[in-house]
Amino acid sequence: MLSVHGLETCYGSAQALFGVDLEVADGEVMALLGRNGAGKSTLLKSIIGLVHPAAGSIVFAGEEIAGDPTHRISRHGIGYVPEERRIFTGLSVAENLAVGRRPPGGSGAGWTAERIYELFPPLSAMRRRRGGAMSGGEQQMLAIARTLMGNPRMILLDEPSQGLAPRVVTALANALEGLKRQGMTVLLSEQNVRFAERLADRATVLETGQVRWVGTMAAFAADIEAQHDLLHV
């Protein structure tokens, strides 16, 4: 479904990605692991077009999308949930969802606000609340929900569990497992290996902007040495 090859991205003169390759199959959850500053966020931003890669190719569903404007990449069917969540703080929950709403494409799942509220019950009770008045966990749910409203074929999740209380993390993991069962393709950037282990089929590990390890999630979770080397845990 998504195929990244030889991707290089720079911020000014600071290079963040050095020739990254990545394959994500249809219906697969791929974990993108690595420490802070390893280049995970930059990779996701490069895919969605918020930063422009200096070199390399990004092919999604058979089409080259590297260098396209962000809104067009999104319309190809890629949803993006940023690390900072970036909820529209002045808009209500319902309005945030309305911004994300787009008619389902060919293989779209036909998300509606009602189905969203089923997936994330807490949101249902706060439809009129302003995004700025929500807790971190609620904002995270809303950020994912808002992206689903666009009926993406694949979503890029940037550190969804970060800064959340353990109870909220569990609820989030449950919701994401539900999404996975429905066949959603996910590229999940995480630092929390346990969280990733629960959801991911395979894992790609980045270090200082390069891919250092690719394989099944189970294999990485079992490889204490690799975890220590690459994640320092």
Binding site: S161, Q191, N192, V193, R194, V233
Partner: peptide, 12 residues
């Protein structure tokens, strides 16, 4: 270890 290093047992 639990809240920052992310290897706590009860995280999920």
């Amino acid at each position: 270890r639990e809240i920052y290093l992310g290897t706590g047992e009860q995280t999920c």
